[in-house]
């Protein structure tokens, strides 16, 4: 992939100077330490700040939620996974497509800045993961944007060097006691920072049940039971709407394999309602499988 930064800067500059959009969401370099960070610019002169490099891993689509009550038109740069996030928001009625100018970037796979930084902080000795693709990118089936007004870069092959559901199948093959033990272990490490929820593009409710105090649906203790409730609730709430961007796993400070829950639900939905991948195309009136009803829907769970 050639350096797309000049293109990104040119497009952003034009969008702003021609008044096509009011603001542009992209990435820039943090002056303090050179990390790639999300950036929001409102003047064409600032377009020179924008960059695109292999550390632009953040999904900017979630950031649109901050603008859902305004009427501003927004230019946004998206990778494959981010573009599915845009479809998610539009389909959920959270953000109208008309207010967006989407610049798609065919994604060659990103590196996880935080993981590299953690490696550099000495925890893993010499095996710094700097050359490695981020975990979430290694499972990516759609590196090319699915919705855009303009496309940059060359079409990329899917990365998916692992079978999509192989981890889920590994868990399914365990005995029920072993599975309980496995997830108990995982959930006991959760610190309930809610980063997985807040970064999630499918978690776009204005009022989240985990923030409610009257009634309090899930306790605030970090006991295995409350943590399990949190993760089971959240997995069910995004079931059928998860776009598999993998941001939840990326941001988890405890490194929990949260996609194991999401992919299990995706796998079951595939089996019960036919193959489905969330956020692949934006169609008028289309609804995710769990948001629609057909008489012939299977219902083996109900007596």
């Amino acid at each position: 992939m050639g350096d797309l930064t000049p293109e990104v800067q040119r497009i952003a500059g034009n969008l702003l100077s021609q008044g096509q959009v009011d603001l542009v969401l992209g990435w820039a370099k943090a002056p303090s330490n050179g990390q790639s960070v999300p950036a929001c610019i409102r003047q064409a002169e600032q377009a020179g700040r924008l960059i695109f490099d292999q550390y632009c891993i953040h999904n900017l689509a979630t950031g649109l939620l901050d603008h859902r009550d305004s009427s501003e038109r927004i230019g946004i740069f998206v990778k494959g996974c981010d573009s599915r996030g845009i479809v998610r928001l539009a389909e959920d009625g959270q953000f109208p497509r008309e207010r967006l100018y989407i610049v798609g970037i065919c994604c060659p796979g990103m590196k996880d800045q935080a993981a590299c930084d953690r490696a550099a902080s000495g925890l893993f000795g010499e095996t710094a993961g700097d050359s490695e693709l981020a975990g979430k990118c290694r499972q990516c089936a759609h590196p090319n944007p699915v919705i855009y007004d303009e496309l940059l870069g060359d079409q990329q092959p899917p990365f998916l060097n692992d079978v999509r559901f192989s981890d889920v199948q590994r868990i399914e093959a365990m005995g029920i006691g072993e599975r309980g033990e496995f997830f108990s272990q995982i959930f006991s490490k959760c610190i309930r920072c809610y980063a997985c929820r807040n970064i999630c593009v499918a978690c776009n409710c204005r009022q989240c049940i985990f923030d409610e105090t009257r009634p309090q649906w899930v306790g605030r203790s970090t006991s295995a039971a409350d943590n399990m409730m949190y993760h089971a609730f959240r997995a069910m709430h995004v079931a059928g709407r998860c776009v598999e961007c993998g941001e939840c796993e990326r941001v988890c400070p405890a490194g929990l394999p949260l996609m194991l829950l999401n992919r299990k639900l995706i796998k079951d939905i595939d089996q019960l309602f036919g193959p489905y991948e969330a956020g692949l195309s934006l169609e008028e009136g289309a609804r995710p499988p769990l948001s629609s009803y057909r008489v012939e829907d299977p219902d083996p769970f109900v007596r």
Partner: peptide
């Protein structure tokens, strides 16, 4: 704060942050 998502990661991994709540089970 444009891109702050209001998650609690920074406060929970911070060695100085010390806010707490008292709740009932």
């Amino acid at each position: 704060s444009t891109f702050c998502m209001n998650c609690g990661v920074c406060t929970y991994i911070c060695p100085v942050c010390h806010c707490f709540d008292i709740q009932v089970m």
